[in-house]
Amino acid sequence: MERDSLPGAADLRFFGAVGASISHEMKNVLAIINEMVGLLDDLSRMAATGRPLEPERLQSMTGRMQAQVARGDGIMRGLNRFCHSVDRPRDTLDLTDLTGFVADLAKRRAALREVTLETPPPPQPQRVTANAFALEHLIWACLERAIALADRGATLVLRTEAGPAGPRVRITGLTPAGPTDWAAIPDEGERRLAERLGATLSADPAAGELILSLPELG
């Protein structure tokens, strides 16, 4: 994908989905801070009428608020990084770091389906040369597929490793609750996302895994 080429509809949908998910999470952070501030206000009004206000309670509340500010800061840093990924049309990327980043973006979507995502550190770093945004989109699409296939309560493990033809991402832990048409993976949209990076997506029903194979560092 060239830097200045117009993004396709699928890219815009991906950008929108991530933006909506992040804004939802940020709303929760603001809602919590709103209630904490409201509670502090309630307590200070009560203190003004003579009811004692324990310092320990105040300290606990400020600590809880600081934790939410830190959470919000992390969310906004993620958003900033995601938005700037479109500025990296061809870059050498740490595949493990990028996979972990996308998993983080997808965490809430997974949680809503009661699916947990894990990204264990690889034995050795895996690097790829690619368009950062296109690779994020491809990994996101793989994760969406994996989350949809996973049974409720499942843990999906995303491993980055050296494959026979280049670095790869393996998503294991797929235990579909119902009948699954594994032969339909990848679908047309997933195939297109993979093709533009010279990658391939395949499924191994026996192992319950998706395998995203990327080209050697170019």
């Binding site: 929760n28 809602a31 919590i32 904490m36 409201g38 509670l39 309630d42 809880r64």
Partner: peptide
């Protein structure tokens, strides 16, 4: 969001 409901509940 347990922090949210606990603060709201206290209020």
């Amino acid at each position: 969001e347990v922090e949210l409901v606990s603060a709201l509940g206290e209020r």
